[in-house]
Computed example of a mutant assay.
Amino acid sequence: MDIVPVAAENCPRPAPAPPPAPRSEARAALKDSAGVGLGFLPLGLAFGALVTQSGLDWWWAVLSAAIVFGGSFEFLLIGMVTASTPLAAVALSALLVNIRHVFYSLSFPLHRVSGRLGKAYSTYTMCDEVYALTTGEQARTWSSRRILWLQFFLHLYWVGSSTAGALLGSLIPGSVTGLDFALTALFTVLALDAVRTLRGDAPTPVLAALSALAARLLCPGQMLPAAFTLFTAALLARHLASFRKPRHA
């Protein structure tokens, strides 16, 4: 019996793997957001309780969490609203507090979010925690759906916990302290995770620490934007230095 060779191009090729189903993307995003959501819970409860204890109606917390979605600025906004601060002063304060988002846009993966509506919502709900989760090494392959689901869940966590805090504000004693430290602890954990993903790139966290220290000494009143500016300048200088370094075969 003669054996007829079969050409490689005639062999059936395995079908490409289908894209992840929307449900699996939502499930993965829910898992990704769980840790940050636990950090949002005590902070949102504290914010909602502060709204009602400041003499505002409970629905102020819901509107602020859903529309402003500004985290630390929302705590500042409560005092401005109760003091009838002029709108121009509120706008200037919002710019100074949230100016760090200008630096986030340099590396936030907005190009992976599809559709104008999706990009608009992704830009609107970008916060510190979203930036930390979506710019890590493990998020390089995340799809548009997964990023949007992640932002939606974090938005939902904040609105839900703030609403619960406003409705249950009268049950939370005013002597309870330390709830605001949840935000600091959350950022500490996210920073540690970011350092682990650097894989031996020691200069980057060292530059970040030196930038924060210099900003604290030089501009204590505007430490955050000053630290971001110094860190960005240091990264650019490091990049230019490595680019100009002669390469050997």
Rank of each mutant, 00 (worst) to 15 (best):
M80C: 09
S105P: 02
A91L: 15
R112Q: 10
A83S: 15
G70W: 02
I78V: 15
M80Q: 13
L96Q: 00
R100P: 03
G118T: 08
V81G: 06
L76D: 04
F75Y: 14
S84G: 11
F103Y: 06
A94Q: 06
L106H: 01
A94P: 05
T85S: 11
R100G: 06
F108Y: 13
S72H: 09
I78R: 07
G79R: 12
T85V: 15
F73E: 13
G71F: 03
R112C: 08
L96I: 09
S72G: 14
L92Q: 11
V90A: 09
L87Y: 13
F73M: 15
L117W: 14
L92W: 12
E74N: 09
L96F: 11
H111D: 14
L76W: 00
L96E: 00
L76K: 01
S93Q: 01
S105Q: 01
R100Q: 04
G79C: 12
T85C: 14
F103D: 01
L76P: 03
A94G: 10
A91Q: 04
G115A: 13
L106N: 00
A120G: 13
A88K: 08
P109Q: 05
R116C: 12
A83H: 13
M80K: 08
N98E: 09
G118I: 05
V102I: 06
A94I: 07
F108A: 14
H101L: 05
A88P: 10
P86A: 09
N98T: 04
G70N: 06
L92V: 15
S105A: 13
L117I: 15
N98R: 04
V97N: 07
L106Q: 02
A91N: 05
G70P: 04
L95M: 15
S84W: 03
R100T: 03
A83Q: 13
F69Q: 05
F69K: 03
R116I: 14
H101F: 07
L77W: 12
S84E: 08
H101V: 02
R100A: 03
L95H: 10
I99Q: 00
G115P: 14
A89H: 08
S72W: 07
G70C: 04
F108W: 07
F75R: 11
R100V: 02
G70T: 05
I78E: 10
L96T: 01
